[in-house]
Design a protein around this nucleic acid. Structure first.
Lengths: 238, 238
DNA sequence: TCTATGAGTATACATCGTACGCACCGGCTT
DNA sequence: AAGCCGGTGCGTACGATGTATACTCATAGA
């Protein structure tokens, strides 16, 4: 069996199939968007496609392969910035990725985290643009890649945390942050009441930006970009 | 039903049970360490504990609850630094977490990513120590927490990526990085051969630190910590 | 018109999480 | 001492899931 991606491009038009890897992935994405990742069932998928449960196996060797296809499909929909100013580019990249993840929250929950990191075509494009954006500063390739990896790691970690928090909230039917904190009281008041976490308790009392998830994401991002700026700054001319 | 953590501490010693939430979690962790997360089956777990499949349900209402217990158990084993120098403390925190994740790679694969972000007691301890470490600089609580979140996000993202890469490798039986790249050729040579990714192709040719995963982790971490240092530096006295 | 190819189908199975009710044991009340 | 009773662990059973295997049948090329 050749590579999944290779097979994809060589769409053999010899027959006129009603199904395709693409259509399967699209259906899977729409199911996951609506009802979460665990709602993706070969049977449900087939029903959605108006087809028998086993039909998909003509185009996909595994359920996991469907997940890979889903990842690549949504990455393909991300508009990847292609800019001059590296910092603007990275900010756009980060915010774009965040929007993508918030739209498809299952991205953070893929059981095979592998899939999220495998080199799918669209992920490569992403790396490509980023590397191009910082090409100006003459860095060795290792450092250049480390910058890409760092930003990517932050994005991944921050969005995962945000999605986790959001899901925890909506799953329990909270809308406002205050409501959430009231709801958490059950678990949390007890924990905080133990007096073991004074700093954290202070945060819950005094913080102002607790519910401003965008502010949190952007602030963290600026921390990261500041650090990278140091690396990119040419040390000479100052 | 009261909170899971509450129930844990109020271990009612009225009876002499052979089982306990703790023992269940330990067994689950050892299974996951050995054979991966998907090897955790209620039946397998019971067999490992020398007990009938349904026995665990006396102590746990869900399989998901077992996952939560596992997370907290291993977080509890992490030695969380408690230092003076914030940068040393954070470095130690990051390297410790990395070691923990590499030891329990399933941490990055928890299907309910929620579990990884829920406020378990040991995770709170972690936040507590970190906040204490940067208490010196007088920051508002929001910024202080954003620093914690940023480092945490980087750690989470970077370790996930590293684990994903490692699993992809071992899963296909590669040991050396060169072997891995040779193995990836199938998928990758074709992709890179398309000429769509010149920057990335240059990296695969010229990079030197491709296989030094520790260097990659630490370098990214330094980028992040540099950015935070800017925030912590008192702007006055220079 | 015959036939081979390949798309979609039908049936079946092992394995999973877990609902439900039972058997049993030790400490309490009387 | 006798009997109840809460709680521990067990047995059975069920519906859902991923997928192996063998099929039907339409169509394109001869």
């Amino acid at each position: 069996m050749t590579s999944l991606w290779e097979r994809l491009e060589q769409a053999d038009n010899s027959a006129r199939p009603s199904l395709s890897a693409r259509r399967i992935a699209e259906a899977a994405v729409s199911i996951a968007d609506a009802d979460g990742l665990e709602a993706i069932t070969m049977r449900r998928l087939a029903a959605e496609l108006g087809v028998a449960p086993m039909a998909a196996y003509r185009y996909v060797s595994d359920k996991n392969e469907i997940l890979e296809l889903m990842v690549d499909l949504v990455y393909g929909q991300a508009d990847i910035p292609q800019g001059e100013d590296w910092r603007q580019t990275m900010r756009a990249l980060a915010l774009g990725m965040r929007a993508l993840v918030l739209k498809h929250t299952w991205l953070t929950q893929l059981p095979a985290a592998r899939a999220a990191f495998e080199l799918t075509p669209n992920r490569l494009t992403l790396a490509e643009r980023t590397l191009a954006a910082i090409r100006g500063a003459d860095l060795d390739v290792d450092t250049a890649m480390s910058i890409f990896r760092t930003v990517t790691a932050y994005i991944h970690g921050a969005t995962s945390a945000e999605v986790g928090l959001r899901q925890l909230s909506t799953e329990r039917g909270w809308v406002s942050g205050d409501e959430a904190r009231a709801g958490l009281s059950g678990q949390m008041t007890w924990l905080l009441g133990t007096g073991r976490y004074p700093e954290f308790a202070r945060y819950t009392r005094e913080a102002v930006r607790k519910d401003d998830l965008l502010w949190q994401f952007e602030t963290g991002l600026e921390h990261v970009l500041d650090g990278i700026a140091l690396r990119l700054a040419t040390p000479g001319p100052g």
